[in-house]
């Protein structure tokens, strides 16, 4: 099985001409199957930009990037959208749709898959909510859930479509210590069960122990690796 994420010589800059500011310089990064990689570094080091490139949310400028066997250099919006459907995203804010309840939010991630009936979508959403411990809350809208519960719904939404990769951006930043650790542990357990690799940007020192490997970035470059733990 090929590595889910392979980046070589990826560079990226914002702005034009004199205002051009490089945020990524010759980044190389590899995530192996089933691996949990944390990306840390000071703000402005380019880790979020890197995440949006891997997540096909932005078009590549220079370098080569293969994500889930899709070459991102020169990929059009259609190809990138197709790739995004195979990635589970977890955001700093849960970004659930406020007018949908928990199971409808999770089922939204399945509406893009052809050949599923409404019943199948909802039963898969229910099963996923049960596995994140929210089976009793599936009919509640996000406004009636706690911060940790919302982030668990977001995890369920990211995982329900059986993604080949999970990209997470500070998923615990908005949570208190207990629920942050709970969410991190849940994410780690779910990813391990399914053998899904995770690439997570985080500043949160409380959850660094969940990683197989920690990659540190500074000034748009990857700092040579430290052993985890």
């Amino acid at each position: 099985m090929a590595d889910p994420v392979v980046l070589e010589e990826v560079s990226y800059a914002f702005g034009e001409g004199e205002l051009r500011r490089a945020v990524l310089r010759d980044v190389a990064l590899r995530v192996m199957p089933g691996e949990i990689v944390l990306l840390t570094g000071p703000s402005g080091s380019g880790k979020t930009t890197l995440l949006t490139l891997i997540g096909a949310l932005r078009a590549m400028q220079a370098g080569r990037a293969r994500v889930l066997e899709t070459e991102l250099a020169g990929a059009g919006e259609g190809q990138r959208r197709a790739l995004r459907r195979r990635i589970g995203f977890i955001f700093q804010n849960h970004n659930l749709l406020g007018f949908l309840n928990a199971r409808q939010n999770v089922a939204m991630a399945l509406e893009l898959q052809a050949g599923l009936t409404e019943r199948e979508r909802l039963s898969r959403a229910d099963a996923m909510l049960a596995s994140v411990g929210l089976e009793d809350h599936r009919h509640k809208p996000p406004s009636q859930l706690s911060g940790g519960q919302r982030q668990r719904v977001a995890i369920a939404r990211a995982l329900v479509g059986d993604p080949g990769l999970i990209l997470a951006d500070e998923p615990t930043a908005a949570l208190d210590k207990a629920s942050g650790q709970e969410v991190a542990a849940l994410l780690r357990r779910m990813a391990r069960q399914r053998q899904v690799p995770i690439l997570m940007v985080t500043h949160d020192p409380r959850i660094l122990d969940m990683a197989d490997r920690i990659v540190t970035m500074e000034d748009g470059r990857v700092v040579p690796a430290l052993p985890a733990g």
């Binding site: 959208r81 995004r84 995203f89 749709l97 406020g98 939204m108 893009l112 939404r157």
Partner: peptide, 15 residues
């Protein structure tokens, strides 16, 4: 009022 939600839908693969 729902830009973040719409952007989220785009991020997870909605066209």
């Amino acid at each position: 009022g729902h830009l973040r939600e719409y952007a989220t839908l785009k991020a997870i693969g909605y066209s």
